[in-house]
Design a protein around this nucleic acid. Sequence first.
DNA 1: CGTACCCCCTGGCTGC
DNA 2: TGCAGCCAGGGGGTAC
Length: 299
Amino acid sequence: MPELPEVETVRRGLSPHLEGNRIEKIEIRRPDLRFPFPPDIVGELTGQIISEVDRRGKYLLFRMENNSILLNSLGMSGRWTLTGGKVSFTPGTFAHGAAIGTGDGPHDHLVIDFHNGLRATYTDARRFGYIHLIKSGISEDEDRFLRVLGPEPLEPNFDATILAQNLRNRNSPIKNTLLDQSVVVGLGNIYVNEVLNRSGVSPRRISSSLVKKNGKPGTQLELIVDQIREVLSEAIDAGGSTLQDFRGVSGDDDLGWFPVNFRVYGREGEVCLKPGCSGVVRRIVQSNRSTFYCARCQR
DNA sequence: CGTACCCCCTGGCTGC
DNA sequence: TGCAGCCAGGGGGTAC
């Protein structure tokens, strides 16, 4: 579920509480999520101090002082809850949230207890998420999950030229290609719809048609790059403010689902909210996933 | 290499 | 109220 802004919001919520904190105990409540838990995770991480809570694309990276990394994909329904000490909250909780994870719920699969009494619980009803361990001494470039990722859209090294390179030989619709994390990381099924609407580009457009014959980005591709940055940044800002409101509160499942005003997503049959447009939002299916767009202003 | 499909799993909502 | 059917924010694996 979570796309880049949601994962970033979770990261920001966890980081001040976990960084510098020592892991006293790790408990695994079932053998697997999407994949089996790494067999040596308990031995490898017990006693370690978390030096940084980082993010790459939609992955959370818990960097340890011994340079090993706990990688976590939230899948569709994964979330973290902090309890104990002075805090009790779930950063970036999602709309379909079940009970807050205290470590005893039916979907509380991983529980980490820290030196200072804090407990971090990973909850994931659908179990599409997973936990992966990058051992100390293994380079991130060699890791099977990290090495295939495309550029970070909010970093300076992402621009229309890079994207054009990644799209020039792509023969599938732009909506599908932008969801491919090897092309650019972070976009999911909500924000990709919003980006294309704001850019005025049809989700059905063949990706390579947005690249000029000389390999340079066309005007519409430049717009897409601008809108990727803008949509993701706005959503992060919205998530940040929501998180502040959520701090210290518990049990409200509606908070944390960011108050972004979607112009097309989930709005089939309603009027397109692009300023000046009076089109109607359509829903189509691409690669078995819903696409929302306005055929009037997206070409 | 690129692309198309299938699948993993639970829960919420809608309509009968 | 029960239940079937459909839908959901991701993405790995495999076959072509």
